[in-house]
Lab assay of single mutants.
Amino acid sequence: EFILQPIHNLLMGDTKEQRILNHVLQHAEPGNAQSVLEAIDTYCEQKEWAMNVGDKKGKIVDAVIQEHQPSVLLELGAYCGYSAVRMARLLSPGARLITIEINPDCAAITQRMVDFAGV
Rank of each mutant, 00 (worst) to 15 (best):
E1Q: 11
E1A: 15
E1V: 12
F2Y: 15
F2L: 13
F2I: 13
F2V: 15
I3T: 10
I3M: 11
I3N: 10
I3F: 11
L4Q: 15
Q5E: 06
Q5K: 15
P6S: 08
I7T: 01
I7V: 03
H8Q: 15
H8R: 15
H8D: 15
H8P: 14
H8N: 12
N9I: 12
N9S: 13
L10Q: 14
L10M: 14
L10P: 12
L10R: 12
L10V: 15
L11V: 15
M12L: 10
M12I: 08
G13C: 12
G13A: 03
G13D: 01
G13S: 07
G13V: 14
D14H: 13
D14A: 09
D14E: 14
D14Y: 13
T15I: 14
K16M: 13
K16E: 09
K16N: 10
E17V: 09
E17K: 11
E17G: 15
E17A: 14
E17D: 07
Q18P: 13
Q18H: 14
Q18R: 10
R19L: 02
R19C: 04
R19H: 10
R19S: 10
R19G: 11
I20N: 15
I20S: 13
I20L: 12
I20M: 11
L21P: 00
N22Y: 03
N22K: 06
N22S: 10
H23N: 00
H23P: 00
H23Y: 00
H23D: 00
H23R: 00
V24L: 00
V24A: 00
Q26E: 08
Q26H: 07
Q26K: 13
H27P: 04
H27R: 08
H27N: 05
A28P: 03
A28E: 10
E29A: 14
E29G: 06
P30H: 10
G31V: 06
G31A: 11
G31E: 09
G31R: 04
N32T: 10
N32Y: 14
N32I: 08
A33S: 10
A33P: 04
A33G: 07
Q34L: 13
Q34H: 12
Q34P: 13
Q34E: 12
Q34R: 14
L97R: 11
L97Q: 05
I98T: 09
T99P: 04
T99I: 02
T99A: 05
T99S: 02
I100S: 08
I100L: 10
I100V: 10
I100F: 07
I100T: 07
I100N: 03
E101D: 03
E101A: 10
E101V: 01
I102M: 06
N103Y: 00
N103H: 01
N103K: 09
N103D: 02
P104T: 03
P104A: 07
P104S: 02
P104R: 05
D105H: 06
D105Y: 15
D105N: 07
D105E: 04
D105V: 02
C106W: 09
C106R: 02
C106G: 06
C106Y: 06
A107V: 00
A107T: 01
A107P: 02
A107D: 06
A107G: 04
A108S: 09
A108V: 00
I109S: 03
I109V: 05
I109M: 06
T110P: 07
T110S: 04
Q111K: 07
Q111R: 01
Q111H: 02
Q111P: 01
R112W: 03
R112L: 05
R112P: 04
M113L: 05
M113T: 01
M113K: 14
M113V: 05
V114E: 07
V114M: 01
D115V: 00
D115G: 01
D115Y: 14
D115E: 02
F116Y: 08
F116V: 02
A117V: 00
A117S: 15
G118V: 08
G118S: 02
G118D: 05
G118R: 03
G118A: 09
V119M: 06
V119G: 06
V119A: 05
